[in-house]
């Protein structure tokens, strides 16, 4: 049986893997800011958001491992899968760029993740909904933080504004994947659009120009950036399998 068959046979496993991989990859990305953010408070904020996401990833991947029943725990799923087996969306694997680009990515993602997690928290599957209910409160903080920074940068200096516009413009092509009719959450689009438009208006910014959406992350077709991220994240467990401290 191929990976695809397994997923088709078990939608809960499919969900848990996607949600876990989104959180894991973005958590790893944000951890790259540790010690490099523009201010101490931002360093703490980005590291804490990354920590929340890695915690959520642990819960979702533990659930995936339990359903899968192959004896691979959350760590094995994180550290011993190859790039083609990751199911995260393309948005989260995009490089950090400058601070404005990181904020653009977080703004688009956290607003989507909050809406999605609210839906999951209310869904009938008890194991998924327990994780969702816990995560949604954390994500609300992330969305608020990113939205406040969108307003501050957009409504700030010419420099901050130009950088944010460039960041949003780059990230915008990965938005459609979040609402893909097959692998995404199309029903959340209207609410998400409204949230994004409201904050951009407050920042006196226009919506980015429409772009042809790039999809593929959900079926394992990733950008080259994910391979580089994994080579760093997985290095230790690949070189010294089972290492602990």
């Amino acid at each position: 049986m191929t990976e695809e068959d397994v997923v088709a046979e078990n939608p809960i496993l499919h969900h848990a893997l996607r949600l876990g991989d989104d959180a894991l990859i973005l958590g790893q990305r944000l951890s790259e800011w540790c010690g490099h953010a523009p201010m101490l408070e931002l360093d703490l904020a980005l590291a804490n958001i990354g920590l929340d996401l890695i915690g959520q990833a642990t819960h979702f991947l533990n659930l995936a491992s339990e359903i899968e029943g192959k004896g691979r725990d959350a760590d094995a799923l994180a550290f011993h899968r190859d790039v083609l087996d990751f199911r995260n969306c393309l948005l989260v694997e995009q490089p950090n760029g400058d601070f404005a680009q990181t904020i653009a990515r977080q703004f688009l993602f956290s607003n989507w993740q909050e809406l999605l997690m609210r839906e999951i928290a209310a869904a009938p599957e008890p194991r998924l909904s327990a994780i969702g209910a816990k995560a949604v409160k954390e994500i609300a903080y992330h969305a608020r933080f990113a939205s406040e920074w969108v307003v501050r940068l957009g409504d700030g200096t010419d420099e901050s504004r130009a950088r944010l516009i460039a960041g949003l413009d780059w990230m915008w092509r990965f938005v459609d994947e979040l609402f893909d009719p097959k692998d995404g959450a199309p029903s959340l689009r209207a609410d998400w659009d409204a949230r994004i438009a409201r904050t951009l208006a407050e920042a006196s910014l226009e919506l980015p120009k429409p772009r042809r959406g790039i999809v593929g992350g959900r079926s394992g077709h990733h950008s080259e950036h994910l391979g580089h991220l994994l080579s760093e994240m997985q290095f230790l467990q690949r070189a010294y399998p089972g290492a602990t401290w």
Binding site: G27, L51, D52, L53, I54, G55, Q56, T58, H59, I131, K134, A135, E138
Partner: peptide
């Protein structure tokens, strides 16, 4: 129960 999902 953990306080936060990612509480180290």
């Amino acid at each position: 129960t953990p306080t936060y999902s990612g509480c180290p």
